[in-house]
Write a protein that binds this DNA or RNA. Structure first.
Lengths: 338, 338
DNA sequence: CTGAAAGCGCTTACAG
DNA sequence: CTGAAAGCGCTTACAG
């Protein structure tokens, strides 16, 4: 059913019906109630495409994933939160996948030119990220999940990666560990750079030197965790503690430790950063894993908020948040061995 | 830039420009080339909302996830495949999350009434699934990932869950195992019912009786795998083999086996169904895990194909596929002990 | 508080 | 092969 027919059916003009349904203030309360009741009863729903054309708003935001690789467990949790939040305001999420960085830039140009979305969410930013300048140039509003360095201020939400890893490192140093390994992500990404800085800063505070052989980089997969940890343990002076970038890499690292005939929490202490996956909980590991943790789902929800506020006209500068990270000590960490 | 301005700029009518850009056959090749070149050069892109209103097509398909729980690693991989495929045809994916079954039904009604999507993808169907009848009633085209029982034929893609678990069970029985446990999903879901049937059928073929105490149900999380396996091992007559429904539950099950002081592949054989997660590979486990495997990402891509064909008018009946499942023997399975 | 009518930016049946 | 014009189903400035 269309507006014209619906309006005729209930004896009102299209104008009044439209205003009543969109929640405009100038409609008499009884009229609005009558319209809403009738819409429900007769099953009238405005055509989204027509609404969008008339208002110039897309009613959707975009998010681009590069390669299949990036659409992993972190993305799912994040999307769950983002989607839950935006749903409440009737905003759709439009998911695109691309292969390369150039494809991603092209995707933003396309989204902007075709007015397909009102804003985009950018994730996994690099320290110097071309996407930010591009979006600012295109005039396509955006919120970044993570931080980056840019000329002009932009909206973002990030967790305190520096603080999280600094805390973990200091905790291990406090337990007497002097050789602490770090399984980190691609150092071009801001989060990995921040974690590295937190690690080095904490070591320095404790007068420990950072051995480059004790830092490994790569995607947070089980396999990388395993390989990197095996490498660390094969060193002439292996570490007595390791900080894993995610629960996935922790899984692999724990396996490597066990295969080497060592016990987690006794011979080698382990701390993992946990984004809080409902299907993989650090408490259920044996031993339970000490973590720095920050639910990525909540970050998704909050970024939904930030997007909505951005679209309502708030200045990007006012939409910047950094979340502290929880630290939970469990059985996987203990005093440095003899 | 709008069509009117763009058309004027290159000295053609809006009609011709529109036809040239949409690939209609009646435009002279040189004209089309000229239009496309100019669009590229001047940065003209048709406004999506206007196109949609004029054609009556949404240019998007919908997918609904119930609760955060269902948006796990399987969903991510599936979405990666689906999105990659639909992207090629310029079809957007609209993701919604809802809490309850009733909310999901409401979401479909909303999507249908507002013409927000041209079709939807339904996943994790139950044996008797109300969503199918609802979508057929609403006239909203859909493709199901999985199978279900319904009056009228519908488009679907499923893997051979029956065959996969029957093969795994027979393999274990062939190795002399007589007490084989199964970690399965919610039995209301078709895939879990099919796996259960495959398990029972294989046991019967080998003249083994199915002990209800050896079947467990629940979400495929690490934790559930752990708890269920611990329960099995605490039985008066514990199993010597287990089939885990996913790599996540296999993780937990393996831990429970180890904690009990038993060795995977020697004291207890383990087979996992693997949906092929890039960050968690069965070959990297210790011992490497024997699997029935079927990439859920490929299923996502293929379902994208089916959706496009459905929208082109092919009959749902012609769009039904069941994929065989690979079986890979690795170190986690061995002869039944003593 | 309500309505008649223009306009959003495309597509496409019809005419040539 | 190309074009003038109606129409897609809404919103909203303007008038009352």
């Amino acid at each position: 059913m269309k507006l014209k027919e619906f309006a005729a059916r209930i004896g009102l003009s299209q104008t009044t019906v439209s205003r009543a349904m969109s929640g405009y203030p100038e409609v008499k309360p009884e009229t609005r109630a009558r319209v809403l009741e009738a819409a429900e009863r007769l099953g009238y729903r405005p055509n989204i495409s027509a609404q969008r054309l008339a208002t110039g708003r897309a009613g959707a935001i975009g998010i681009v994933f590069q390669g299949g690789g990036r659409f992993g467990p972190h993305s799912s949790e994040f999307m769950g939160g983002l989607s839950t939040r935006l749903q409440k305001d009737g905003i759709d999420i439009l998911v695109s996948t691309v292969e390369t960085e150039a494809d991603e830039a092209a995707a933003y140009r396309r989204l902007a030119a075709s007015k397909r979305v009102d804003a985009v969410v950018v994730h996994t930013p690099k320290v110097a990220d071309a996407r930010i300048a591009l979006l600012q140039k295109l005039g396509l509003p955006f919120v970044v999940h993570g931080r980056s360095e840019a000329e002009r201020p932009f909206a973002f939400l990030d967790i305190d990666n520096f603080g999280a890893i600094a805390t973990a490192t200091e905790h291990l140093a406090g337990l007497g560990h002097r050789r602490i390994a770090l399984i980190n992500g691609d150092p071009a990404n801001t989060y990995a750079r921040d974690r590295d800085l937190g690690y080095r800063t904490a070591l320095a505070r404790r007068s420990l030197t950072a051995d480059p052989a004790l830092t490994g980089h790569g995607e947070f997969t089980d396999e990388n965790g395993f390989r990197l940890m095996q490498g660390f343990l094969a060193l002439p002076a292996p570490p007595t503690a390791v900080i894993a970038g995610s629960m996935m890499s922790a899984l692999g690292a724990m396996r490597a430790i066990r295969i080497a005939g060592l016990a987690v929490g006794r011979d080698v202490s382990l701390i993992a950063h946990d984004d809080v996956f409902p299907y993989l909980s650090p408490e259920n590991f044996v031993p339970p894993v000490t973590t720095t943790q920050s639910p990525i789902r909540s970050a998704g929800e909050r970024i939904g908020d930030l997007v909505l506020r951005l679209l309502r006209g708030e200045a990007p500068k006012a939409l910047q948040e950094i979340w502290p990270v929880d630290f939970r000590v469990r059985g996987s960490t203990g005093p440095a061995p003899g």
